[in-house]
Amino acid sequence: MYRTIIFDFDGTLIDSEKLVQSLFPTIIDEFNLTHLSKYALSDFKKKSLKQIITEFKISPLLIFKINKKVQEEVFKKIPELDWQEGVLQMLEMINSRGYDQGILTSNSRKNVDHFLSSKQCELFSFIASSKHLFGKDKALNQLIKRKKLMKREVLYVGDEVRDVEACLKIGIDVAAVSWGFDDEKLLVDVKPTYLVKHPKNLLECL
């Protein structure tokens, strides 16, 4: 059924949540978001990015700046980051079955390359980066056309509501993973093709 599996990076493949949590006070101070100081990162996990922008009154431009700041800090901490539990074994199994694996992320290509190099990982045949947090549907379409893929043969794997929405918008199947950033209930509500609760369970979707 599927020939190509495309993965999100942060939250889906790597465990960057503790790093983001440690940056929370710095982000609040640097971007003058003192009204958010009473919240914990867990409060944001229960809301989609669009809900965060609306309910916490954070502009899309500021979200972009915060994301850039986080990416810069991620690069510094790459040696300290690791795969999500069970993910490397999952990737190796998918690779052994002959699937083509790639990455499409809102993180920088530099960060992805740095992480994969630090782990001596050569399991991905392509890596693409999209700077637009809300433009993943366009980035996916462009990637599919550039790689000359058939949509029915592509499965995207991500951990956020916006990942699911992007895939549904362009008509490709999507596996939403519950071990990443967005809360499982949020993911269920947007009706992904599959809801995956452990990396080994992704193999059952292929």
Rank of each mutant, 00 (worst) to 15 (best):
K110C: 00
S42P: 09
Y156G: 12
D159W: 05
L155M: 08
S59V: 14
A176G: 01
K185F: 09
W83K: 05
I14T: 13
I172N: 02
T12G: 06
S178E: 11
Q71K: 13
Y2I: 12
V164E: 02
N141Y: 12
D10P: 04
V177M: 04
T193H: 13
D189C: 08
F64T: 05
N107W: 00
S42Y: 14
D10M: 03
L206F: 14
Y99K: 09
S178L: 09
D113G: 04
V70G: 00
G158L: 08
G11H: 09
G180K: 09
T105V: 09
D82K: 08
T4E: 10
N95I: 04
A175K: 14
S118E: 07
F64V: 14
L116C: 01
E73H: 02
S96C: 14
Y2A: 08
D82V: 06
K46V: 02
P25Y: 15
S16K: 00
R109M: 00
D189Y: 11
L19C: 04
Y39H: 15
M150Q: 15
L143N: 04
F64S: 13
A139K: 01
D189Q: 10
Q84W: 15
E165H: 05
Y99A: 11
Q101R: 12
P79I: 06
K200R: 13
W179Y: 08
S16G: 02
S59N: 06
I6N: 07
E72W: 03
V70Q: 00
S117T: 02
F115L: 04
I63F: 07
L13K: 04
C205S: 15
I5Q: 06
K18D: 00
T105L: 04
K57I: 06
K110D: 00
K148Q: 05
T105A: 09
M150E: 11
S59D: 02
S130L: 01
K46R: 15
I6F: 00
K136I: 07
D10W: 04
N111Y: 07
